[in-house]
Design a protein around this nucleic acid. Structure first.
Length: 538
DNA sequence: CGTATTTGACCAGCGC
DNA sequence: GCGCTGGTCAAATACG
């Protein structure tokens, strides 16, 4: 379990060893963008040195051989075929020392070679994608194992608190409930999920009692707001039968039988799921990022369906609906910050009911996890968010209070990921001590990268959501905002994966989380997550 | 002409 | 009950 960083890198290396030599151990090659950047570099190098045609020829040949022999000892070769081809053609035109026949002949040969190389690269690209997903899966498994161990520890603590409760201390009893409830939220992976087997130790009756007895404010306060037939609308009424109906919690109980049956959950979880589902549905994930663009690119397609002037903000608020699939209930609001108009506030709500492109998935994992974290906190109480046993909370905690703000107040529980703060932020000590922030503060760091890091760190919860019987589609479901420069998520993932220290930074972040769990750091509780009771209506 | 955006109208919740 | 506000709809408009 604690070998996660090693395992992550190991799995990647293991998957690549058939084609990559150990020399690349310190290089992160999985990312496609990284590949392009290297290619660009090499192209410019070649342009500079293209005086020697023979040398260039040899270079092309060598690259081909690298592809065929999978020899990466000199460079990372992932698919710069087109650029390489361009380079080759440029060389041919530049070189005036050869006859036209020779040039044509050579060009044809090179063309054929490059086409073959292109094929190879495509295959290799696909393979790298598979490896990336495999690494993610391994990460999820490891993190679930971590949660399992943490939960065991928490149950020990819970039993101690339970003794206090039996002594008639109502306060201790309440704390016991919170501590059993919060980790359970993460461990409720369903009956067949191995690491979650510990969840069976808690009776389903207790679970139902705890969850149904959770503060109704989050659920009931939002229900009346969203019971309108309009919210669901004609186009969304059909989707509610197959997935989550956006904004109609009143119909949640109707989903439960199918959801519990389809997921094989016991009857005792019905109320759990309805509550969790309703809360999840209403949970909002807000991302603050600096951007001059009207809307940040997050890999999904959006259609603007409304614009309103919000009170207290001279900037209009735009309403977008996901158009990647008909009836997708996901919507987002985009608004500039009144105080600093360079800051773009993007709020996501709902779950996608369709597969997402890889770029969107990367960001979706972030908001899904954040929403799940919110869900776990809302299922307990405001205090639950501060509970050190909340792994997801601590997954965000390392980002410092300046980056993660949770508002569990009615009508919608909202978590805000603030990507706007610089190293000169409110908590310089904290941020600089945080490996995640250290990574975020690296020169050239793209703010869009951060949610991906966090998203990966919390990705397991997305799996948990699927396992726990929430009516979530088989694909990662939520959206997220990115970047101050409105770059695509693919660019973000490229940037982060191209960083040789990415694995180390991620490992450090996870290690930080794990250490925090074992030390029960109270400071992080008070410092890193800021809860607010402010009006979430903007 | 199909699609996306704009924008005024409408509705529901909430506070006074 | 009334007004304010947030959120959505849908006709009008713009755009490719």
């Amino acid at each position: 379990m604690f070998r996660f960083p090693v395992s992550l890198g190991g799995s990647r290396d293991e998957a690549r060893h058939d084609q990559i030599t150990p020399l690349d151990e310190h290089r992160v090659v999985v990312d496609e963008v990284d590949f392009f950047s290297e290619k660009r570099d090499r192209v410019s190098r070649e342009n500079i040195n293209d005086e020697d045609d023979e040398a260039n020829k040899a270079h092309v040949k060598m690259e081909n051989s690298r592809v065929e022999e999978n020899d990466r000892s000199r460079d990372v070769n992932i698919g710069l075929n087109l650029l390489t081809a361009n380079t080759g053609s440029d060389e041919s035109t530049v070189d005036d020392g050869l006859s036209m026949d020779m040039e044509d002949k050579r060009a044809k040969i090179e063309n054929a070679q490059l086409q073959e190389e292109l094929k190879t690269m495509k295959i290799e690209n696909q393979r790298l994608r598979d490896m990336l997903s495999q690494a993610t899966t391994n990460f999820n498994v490891l993190q679930m194992q971590l949660v399992a161990v943490m939960r065991q520890q928490e149950q020990r603590n819970s039993s101690q608190d339970h003794l206090l409760a039996t002594e008639g201390k109502a306060e201790g009893r309440k704390r016991q409930e919170l501590q059993t409830m919060v980790p359970r939220q993460f461990m409720d992976l369903g009956p067949s999920s191995g690491p979650a087997e510990h969840g069976a130790e808690v009776s389903s009756e207790e679970r139902t009692t705890v969850r149904s007895g959770s503060p109704p404010s989050l659920l009931e306060s939002s229900n009346p707001r969203e019971n309108g037939k309009r919210l669901l609308g004609r186009e969304e009424s059909s989707e509610e039968s197959e997935s989550n109906a956006w904004g109609n919690p009143n119909k949640v109980p109707k989903h439960n039988p199918s959801s519990s049956n389809s997921n094989g959950n016991r009857n005792g979880n019905v109320i759990d799921q309805s509550a969790a589902e309703a809360t999840m549905r209403k949970a909002r994930v807000s991302v603050r990022a600096r951007s001059e663009a009207a809307m940040i690119s997050d890999g999904c397609q959006w259609r603007k369906y409304g614009q309103k002037m919000a009170k207290g903000n001279p900037c209009p608020r735009a309403y977008y609906r996901c158009t990647m699939a008909g009836g997708c209930p996901v919507r987002k609001q985009v608004q500039r910050c009144a105080e600093d108009r360079s800051i773009l506030m993007t709020t996501y709500e709902g779950n996608h009911n369709h597969p997402l492109p890889p770029a969107a998935m990367a960001m979706a994992s972030t908001t899904t996890a954040a929403a799940s974290m919110l869900l776990s906190g809302s299922m307990s109480s405001q205090d639950g968010l501060m509970n050190p046993t909340n792994l997801l909370a601590r997954a965000i905690l390392p980002c410092s209070s300046s980056m993660a703000t949770i508002s569990a107040s009615a009508p919608f529980p909202t978590i805000t990921l603030d990507l706007t703060n610089s190293p000169n932020g409110n908590n310089p000590n904290m941020t600089t001590n945080n490996p995640l922030m250290q990574f975020a503060q690296r020169p050239g760091f793209n703010p869009a990268v951060l949610p991906q890091v966090v998203g990966q760190a919390m990705y397991y919860n997305q799996q948990q959501s699927k396992f726990s019987g929430l009516q979530l589609p088989a694909q990662p479901l939520q959206m997220a905002a990115t970047s101050s420069v409105a770059e695509g998520v693919s660019a973000s993932s490229a940037a982060i994966a191209s960083d040789p220290n990415f694995a180390a930074a991620l490992a450090a972040a996870i290690t930080s989380i794990m250490n925090g769990s074992s030390h029960q750091n109270n400071n992080t509780n008070s410092n890193n997550v800021a809860t607010s009771n402010g009006d979430s209506r903007q």
